[in-house]
Amino acid sequence: MKKIFSVLALLFCLNLAYSQDKIEITAEDYENNAVEMADTMRSNGKIYVVVAVVMVVFAGIIFYMIQTERKITRIEREVLKEKGNS
């Protein structure tokens, strides 16, 4: 209980220290068309090409992680069995 309380108190202090001197983002910032954004890319849907590419890369990395984990599990079993026998 004490621990939880002190962590909360710490987070609160950090938040106070952190929130000083900040410029707030307002709803107007979302509507401010004077600032250039990639609107064309979004309106013609090409952004989804980027999304697709990024997701494929991400899926590939995760696939590789899972394969590596499977391999390690297999080796783990082999080594530990050997140790059990000897």
Binding site: I25, Y30, E31, N33, A34, V35, V51, M55, F58
Partner: peptide
């Protein structure tokens, strides 16, 4: 982890972002 990251990547690319000078996209 995979679910959160999928959401985060999609959200980062597709959700509305504030239009700020210098930073843009």
């Amino acid at each position: 982890c995979v679910a959160i990251l999928t959401y985060a990547i999609l959200g980062a690319l597709l959700f509305d972002a504030p239009r700020l000078n210098i930073l843009n996209e």
